[in-house]
Design a binder for these strands. Structure first.
Lengths: 205, 205
DNA sequence: TTGATTTGAGAACGAGCGTTCTGCTAGGCT
DNA sequence: AGCCTAGCAGAACGCTCGTTCTCAAATCAA
């Protein structure tokens, strides 16, 4: 977006992508209000002034962290619907990836959007709009994937089932935030995916 | 718990129950970190020193607020399972009450536990334990109600379905936090309750 | 009325907040 | 070599935080 300046100046101590990744993880762990600029600066390896130069203010850094989260953490979830696995298998895989994201790193339990942005959205209109925008985007993406599945494979119409899948995924993220290990959550993914799909042979275990 | 003192002292300006209700709503709206003691004191109608006299510290007031939430907001949800309505009806009623709780007052969107305590649980061990304790209690209560339903009425075993019902309810609370109106969420309750119950006559609309 | 007791109102405290500023440093350019 | 640029390190700003303290006000007992 910008040509290199004639004189390059001192190089950055930390790669901007790495710095943003660190910031995202600090927000993820401590919440928006709980993550102080001092802690962010130290964790990012960027001086305080550098944060304001790059993102304007703490809010800007948080919004950039949300963008990074959406760009790096969400696509691997949706990839569960790639390929042509049976619907029940794809849905179980999707929830499995959700559980993995929420439980893999004990320092960042749950989901930056469902657990952190949700809190910030309580009384801040801009954050609430951002929150809603991201929920809608994910549910719409899920609906797109469900619509591509064979008709009558699902227990409800794709547009009706999609927000239910999204809500369930977020409920699992809250469980992950509480420290539940993946092994305790994966059976939930199996039950949910089974119930969501029309497979008369294996109803009520 | 204590006998009246020989000399009664100056009466309180605000009833302690009303004060705690106000504190709970302020935490609900602004989150744990976002609710300052100054704002709490003003909103409660209790001087700062009174908060520390009654609850020890800000954490103590938050925990007391959680207790009040659990005592006043949760039982009306579980009451959906009273009576002998058909399982699908009871489950839909339950989610309907969840939606109502999360959307009725725009100043306190969503759920104090699922949206506020969840954030605080990220890096605070005590809050995480408290969070998990409350999630477990609710899922156990749901399981008790599901077990009382006629066998083979549900699409999965009660103990397997209960945490799924809990997770879905919390996902709806996040939607409420984002500002979704009840009218947009109620169809989700209908779809979920239908899918959770074995009613072959009305599968895939 | 007086004394004991409990609360209210608000000042005060040190610490930490988000944000900005000041020199100094490390590179590329000429 | 000397200049220009951009970033670093850390001090500094005013403000708000959670917490504590002080003193006047209000009630009951004697």
């Amino acid at each position: 977006m910008q040509t290199t300046s004639p004189n390059a100046g001192r190089p950055r101590r930390t790669d901007p992508d790495d710095a943003l990744e660190s910031a995202m993880r600090i927000f993820w762990a401590h919440g928006y209000e709980g993550a102080s600029v001092g802690r962010l600066s130290r964790g990012m390896g960027v001086p305080r002034a550098g944060i304001y130069r790059d993102h304007g203010c703490k809010r800007g850094l948080f919004l950039a962290s949300l963008d990074r989260y959406g760009a790096t953490r969400v696509p691997p979830l949706m990839a569960a619907f790639d390929g042509d696995a049976p619907p029940a298998r794809a849905l179980r895989d999707f929830l499995g990836r959700v559980i993995e994201l929420g439980t893999t790193d004990p320092d960042t339990p749950g989901c930056l959007i469902s657990c952190v942005l949700a809190d910030a959205a309580g009384s801040d209109e801009a954050f609430r709009t951002e929150f809603r925008r991201r929920l809608d985007a994910m549910d719409r993406a899920i609906a797109d994937r469900l619509r591509a599945m064979p008709r009558d494979a699902l227990a409800a119409a794709p547009d009706a089932l999609a927000p239910l899948v999204g809500a369930t995924a977020r409920g699992l993220m809250l469980r992950a935030r509480a420290g539940d290990p993946a092994a305790e959550l994966l059976p939930l993914a199996a039950t949910a995916s089974r119930i969501w799909c029309n497979d008369p042979a294996v109803r009520h275990e």
